[in-house]
Amino acid sequence: MIGRAATSNRKGGAVAAELPVGDRGAIWRRRIAYAILIGYALLMFVPFAWSVITSFKTLPDSVRLTIIPQPFTLGGWEYAFTNLTPPLPRLFFNSAIIAVVVTITNLVFGSMAGYAFARLRFRGREVLFLIVLATLMIPDQLRLIPVYLLLNFLGLTKGVLQYAGVMLILAVSGTSIFLLRQYFLSIPREIEEAARMDGAGFFRTFWQVMLPLAGPALAAVAILQFQGTWNGYFWPLIILQDQDQYTLPVGLSQFRLAGGMGTNWPPLMATVVMATIPILILYLFFQRYFVEGIAASGVKG
């Protein structure tokens, strides 16, 4: 199981029993099956479509079952743009800076450590790798209080340093190291040994030979990490006590709790749409990496 690379997604490699083709019963069964499948697939999009529609409605209209807003209004969007704290561009900036930095640190530290665990021999490798795996099993919340106190002590819960606080907690995840290690294990040793023969050191081998080969795995880790951090709620909620530093999910959830906002659906749906759009774009363009990254983290089993 271990050696399988993140990208070895063999399309149609194994296909479970195929439906017999030809007889009428089977054709009808097939049609019904398709109808159910398409219906179910549409069900996946309905709530999102509804949020987009609602964001262009007025409050009284928002509770009616109409597909086309009557009247069509940008009021909800305007309200969201003027009343979100901090303002929307700031929320985007906060989410982006944290997600980008955390993605980069995970790529850098994850690939370095993944390579070391996959290829290099050193004392304590097994124990240290067990620690990496253990971090996947220890509930994050157990460390809420100690980590919070530590960050407090370091001053990382104040002002702009709160960014650093969140980044530090999320800087490198056991999953990133694990995924990249698996990928490096799947690269044939000969390639690396050839480089070593030519006199390249460990760092150069890693940097110039191995890392370029790991492109697909790095892409998968980057996408997963970016999505996870962009959407993350727990740590930003706790560390970012200063609302100027709020990320989109935190700002959004607090916006709903602000006075008179609880059921003001059009602006709430406008913010839901806005918070989802960046990931949606990412998903449309890099769908393959989403699917493969998650499949790869599942190959563990």
Binding site: Q227, N231, V250, L252, S253, T276
Partner: peptide, 12 residues
Amino acid sequence: PAIASSAAITIL
């Protein structure tokens, strides 16, 4: 449905 943030999807 898995791509959206828990905050956005819960409010929805």
